[in-house]
Computed example of a mutant assay.
Amino acid sequence: MSKYRHDLPQLKGGIFLADGGMETTLIFHEGADLPHFAAFVLLADRTGRRQLKDYYIRYLDIAARGKSGFVLDTATWRANPDWGGKLGYSAEALKAANEDAVELLSEIRAERERPGVPIVINGAIGPRGDGYKASKMDADEAEAYHSTQIEIFAATEADMVTALTLTSIDEAVGIARAAKRAKMPCVISFTVETDGDLVTGRTLKEAIAAVDASTGSYPLYYMINCAHPSHFDKVVASDDAWLKRIGGIRANASNMSHQELDESETLDAGDPVDLGRRYRQLTRHMPQLRVLGGCCGTDHRHVAAICEACFPENRLSA
């Protein structure tokens, strides 16, 4: 049974941390072989499972020292049918991988959760296609496609699901509808280009309004991920009411464009301290933010810097 599905602690106030760029950390810092950027393949053996566990624990140590709750993502951003098929996973094997990803986090939560610092298990959902390109699915097709993974999570101890790195309003609508049908709390996280708009040219404001209108405002909140704060800081600089629907940020370390990142053979880790300062500015302007983490290029150093900047009353000790 899920522990927090019907009483998510991050909705009660305070800021929760999340991890950084899982795939970029595992590939560039730890030398992991992740075909098609799929971290869930590490669940297939004891060594990979241990590597994932060590990865998560580094972040949980930061959260514990900062006295922050944590939203712990499954390693399943690529664990959907099309990407699983490219990796040779049958439907049954893919189902088992999603279940195993939740099981690993359940084990970690049982070991690491302490009173007053809850750990939320979040089923991570990725786009059907490339996270930097526009999806061509309509909402009905997206709902049918993503229902498989969401229903798997609904039958586990996962407390919620989050769709990350979305570029398409229709795909977001389909995912939110599928989550609603499965009675799973869900979050929708869009990625934006350097101008702060979706790759389709639609604005973030339009995207959030369209998903809310099509789903009865089902998503708990929205997030922005896989973009540097400098790409969207002007978009969120106003006091417009729609911004209150944004409840989390998981930014990239680099201020390069998606195309530049795709073409780069090295990892741009940016400046963790500067990123922390940018997050502090965002939280001051957007006090409704509840989840702060990283995306491509970020690692535990960036999340520690975010924690230092946004929780000055809980300075981290070495």
Score class of each variant (00 low, 15 high):
residue 266 T to D: 11
residue 247 G to I: 13
residue 109 R to H: 13
residue 153 F to P: 02
residue 78 R to M: 10
residue 318 A to S: 00
residue 42 L to E: 09
residue 91 A to T: 12
residue 87 L to N: 00
residue 70 F to V: 00
residue 200 T to K: 01
residue 63 A to W: 13
residue 235 V to M: 01
residue 217 S to N: 08
residue 286 M to G: 03
residue 291 V to K: 00
residue 9 P to E: 11
residue 266 T to W: 04
residue 60 L to T: 07
residue 184 M to K: 14
residue 34 L to I: 09
residue 172 A to M: 02
residue 196 G to I: 14
residue 299 D to R: 03
residue 122 N to Q: 07
residue 165 T to R: 02
residue 281 Q to M: 13
residue 20 G to V: 06
residue 50 R to N: 14
residue 214 S to W: 08
residue 311 F to T: 02
residue 217 S to Q: 07
residue 237 A to T: 15
residue 204 L to P: 12
residue 219 P to T: 01
residue 276 G to Q: 03
residue 208 I to N: 00
residue 26 L to I: 08
residue 109 R to W: 15
residue 31 G to M: 01
residue 41 V to W: 05
residue 209 A to W: 02
residue 24 T to A: 07
residue 158 A to M: 12
residue 34 L to P: 10
residue 85 G to H: 05
residue 302 H to N: 01
residue 233 D to M: 12
residue 262 D to Q: 05
residue 48 G to M: 13
residue 11 L to H: 12
residue 14 G to D: 15
residue 84 G to Y: 08
residue 238 S to L: 15
residue 172 A to W: 07
residue 42 L to H: 03
residue 173 V to E: 07
residue 145 Y to H: 13
residue 58 R to L: 09
residue 221 Y to A: 04
residue 216 G to M: 03
residue 102 V to R: 03
residue 239 D to M: 02
residue 9 P to L: 09
residue 52 L to F: 10
residue 260 E to H: 04
residue 310 C to E: 11
residue 52 L to K: 01
residue 190 F to S: 01
residue 186 C to I: 08
residue 39 A to Y: 07
residue 58 R to N: 10
residue 10 Q to V: 11
residue 51 Q to K: 00
residue 33 D to V: 06
residue 79 A to V: 03
residue 49 R to V: 11
residue 174 G to T: 08
residue 190 F to Y: 15
residue 211 V to H: 05
residue 86 K to E: 10
residue 287 P to D: 03
residue 196 G to S: 09
residue 36 H to I: 01
residue 244 K to Y: 12
residue 261 L to V: 03
residue 176 A to I: 02
residue 77 W to D: 04
residue 91 A to E: 14
residue 304 A to Q: 09
residue 133 K to R: 10
residue 317 S to E: 13
residue 232 F to C: 01
residue 77 W to E: 01
residue 269 A to I: 14
residue 113 E to R: 02
residue 94 L to V: 13
residue 67 K to C: 12
residue 101 A to P: 12
residue 62 I to S: 01
residue 91 A to L: 11
residue 248 G to H: 10
residue 207 A to R: 04
residue 11 L to P: 07
residue 177 R to K: 14
residue 48 G to V: 12
residue 250 R to C: 07
residue 156 T to D: 04
residue 208 I to H: 03
residue 210 A to P: 07
residue 50 R to D: 15
residue 110 A to S: 10
residue 64 A to R: 08
residue 120 V to W: 09
residue 149 Q to N: 06
residue 316 L to M: 04
residue 206 E to Q: 15
residue 222 Y to L: 06
residue 169 I to Y: 10
residue 222 Y to H: 01
residue 243 L to N: 02
residue 226 C to K: 00
residue 178 A to T: 12
residue 27 I to A: 03
residue 259 Q to Y: 05
residue 275 L to K: 03
residue 120 V to M: 06
residue 87 L to R: 00
